[in-house]
Design a protein around this nucleic acid. Structure first.
Lengths: 115, 115
DNA sequence: CTATTATTCAACCATATGGTTGAACGATTG
DNA sequence: CAATCGTTCAACCATATGGTTGAATAATAG
């Protein structure tokens, strides 16, 4: 099921860093080991490991040990939840705009161009 | 069109705080003054003003002076951009899952009636 | 002009974050 | 077992963040 809502802190916090978004992009195309990921950036191995921890705590990725390597994969459900969250806002303001449109329509037929 | 990509840092960073998400929720229903918003939280006026600044820099809200008050409204386009961004990830992994499904299908027809 | 209301700015504090280096751990290879 | 490869952990540093209080500004009311 969808996690407690405060989980969104971690999800959006993770997404606020460009390196982490880039890691997520790469991993969403193809699962990669921690080492493979680390070579793609001008940062230390440890820095990348930290970013992966952040993504893991937010449940945006999953890790699976394969021999001595650790394979990182994307965790689609969490992204879906975040996306759904933003959609609710869209619905809210779309509803508002609709209401405004209706309001303008009814008042313009009613009023004599006041204000 | 859609803002420079580093803008996403600010957008997701803004969304990572529960107070700011709540402000956004309230404002998405109805435009409010800074003062009205501030009374809704157990924080100082200044703290709320800071949160509004963060949201404003991320272009998630807009402010408009009305007399001595400042009216805060939601800025739908930015939310839409963030939502679209997450959707591209969904598409990426959906594509991956589709590919996997096709792969499994073709390999099973190749083999001798497995399953 | 003065007072009042609404908001912003500035200085400060505590904690979180993103980065580093170097040591430690876990699994495989010889 | 020892050596090695891949990864994690710990300590540390600089800067960012979220909060406070108190002073300063902006617009209206008297």
């Amino acid at each position: 099921m969808v996690e407690r809502l405060s989980h969104l802190d971690a999800v959006f916090g993770s997404l606020s860093d460009p390196t982490r978004r880039d890691i997520l992009k790469r991993v969403s195309r193809k699962s990669m080991t921690v080492g493979e990921i680390a070579t793609q950036y001008p940062l230390t191995f440890a820095a990348i490991a930290k970013h992966l921890n952040v993504l893991h705590r937010a449940k945006l990725i999953s890790k699976e040990r394969r021999g001595r390597e650790q394979v990182v994969s994307i965790a689609p459900d969490t992204l879906l939840a975040a996306s759904r969250y933003l959609e609710t806002y869209q619905q809210l303001w779309e509803h508002r705009l609709d209401s405004l449109a209706r309001f303008l329509k009814t008042t313009s037929t009613n009023s004599k161009g006041s204000r």
